[in-house]
């Protein structure tokens, strides 16, 4: 098991859990980043942070420190 921040660009992984503060967890869960869903890091911003992440067909910008709170499992079957 790894965090989303450690996953190389382009690989699809499955969310296992979301950690962090109440507000943060809520935001992520409500945008559909729930356990079992597939995520993919599309690109990394030119300065190394934030990350461009694809979830449920939508793309989001998320910071590395925040991605580190998302536990993922690989690979998605």
């Amino acid at each position: 098991m790894a965090s989303l921040a450690e996953i190389p660009t382009g690989r699809a992984v499955t969310v296992v859990g979301v950690d962090g503060s109440r507000a943060f967890r809520r935001r992520l869960l409500e945008m559909g980043l729930v356990p079992g869903v597939t995520v993919r890091i599309v690109t990394v911003a030119p300065l190394g942070d934030p990350l461009q992440v694809e979830v449920r067909g939508g793309q989001w910008s998320i910071r590395r420190t925040e991605a580190a709170q998302i536990a993922v499992d690989e690979p998605a079957r």
Partner: peptide, 9 residues
């Protein structure tokens, strides 16, 4: 305050 920076692209 550390709040998530999530924006949709």
């Amino acid at each position: 305050k550390r709040l998530p920076f999530l924006i949709e692209l």
